[in-house]
Amino acid sequence: MEMQNTIKSEAAISGIALHTGVRIHLRMKPAPENTGIVFRRTDMPGAPEVRAYAPNVIDVRRATTIAAPSKAYVVTVEHIMAAFHAAGVDNAYVEMDNAEPPVADGSAGPYFKMIKEAGIQEQNAPAQFWTTDVPLYVENGATSMVVLPSDTFKISCTVAFGETALDTQFYSLEVTPENFEKELGPCRTFVAYRDLAQLIAAGLAKGGSLDNAVILHDGAIISNDGLRFPNELVRHKIMDMVGDLYLTGKRVRAHVIAIKPGHSTNVQLAKLMLARETAQK
């Protein structure tokens, strides 16, 4: 029987937030069994908490935002959640002195590295897995997502953005700690230039740069050091799915097939997965 895990020791990172451009200090701490992943806003009176859980999602524009009645809210949880999910960490506290975590290099890689260096501590409660014996389906506009029964966590994904000849991409893999670290973790966030211009006009993306993002513009893919993989865009989308689907509060064991996924449909699917689980009880 697989058991729940937390991290062995604390781990910390500081850096610039993507949208506000302010410096953020983030610290991961071990948590008891059955805690889940809980964010703490140490900059707010009483350090209120919000659990990373699909019913707590309040916004999915550009990123996944969670909030609690305590008034605590956290923006862009998906990269941290992906790292925890892939590493098999069920329980942890994440303390932040602002609402948005450091963007780092625009990927989940630095967070996975933090967890790996902190170490994994097995706990005294059985791990909980989300599974299904029937297909589930979500469709929203051009986006389709199907969940099929599987003994492992696998994602197959197709994306197409119409910005360059290179942005129609497909990738499929089983999500394991080793595969995540090598194949998904390093993949950076990206944005179409026309959307970036809107973000800047709205006073956002103040911490964005070609060091932590890939830009699609006028038929070209632009970044300081080129693409890390020929299909880095679809790999990043898969990484986002690993994070968003961990909002079920359980490690996922299913095969997810997605066409043009985004945070909105990822969270919609996570909520459907929870509803299916409730109906089975």
Rank of each mutant, 00 (worst) to 15 (best):
Q4Y: 05
N5Q: 13
I7P: 02
I7A: 05
A17I: 05
H19C: 11
H25P: 04
M28E: 07
E33D: 12
G36V: 09
G36I: 10
T42E: 08
D43E: 10
V50E: 09
R51I: 08
N56H: 15
I58E: 12
I58A: 14
V60I: 13
A67H: 12
A68Q: 13
V77L: 05
V77Y: 02
H79K: 09
F84L: 10
A87Y: 00
D90F: 03
N91L: 12
Y93N: 04
V94Y: 08
D97G: 01
Y111I: 06
K113P: 03
K116S: 14
N124M: 14
A127T: 07
L136I: 05
V138R: 03
N140A: 12
N140K: 15
G141C: 09
S144V: 09
S144F: 04
D151R: 09
T152V: 14
S156G: 08
G162T: 12
L166E: 08
L166W: 09
Q169R: 02
F170Y: 15
E178F: 06
L184A: 01
C187A: 12
F190C: 00
F190I: 00
F190N: 00
V191Y: 02
A197T: 13
I200P: 08
A201Y: 11
G203V: 07
L204W: 06
A205C: 11
G207E: 04
S209T: 11
L216S: 03
N224L: 13
R228A: 04
E232N: 07
L233Q: 00
I238F: 01
M239P: 00
V242T: 13
L245A: 07
K250H: 11
V252G: 00
A258D: 01
K260V: 00
K260D: 04
V267R: 07
L269P: 03
L269A: 10
L274P: 03
L274T: 04
A275P: 10
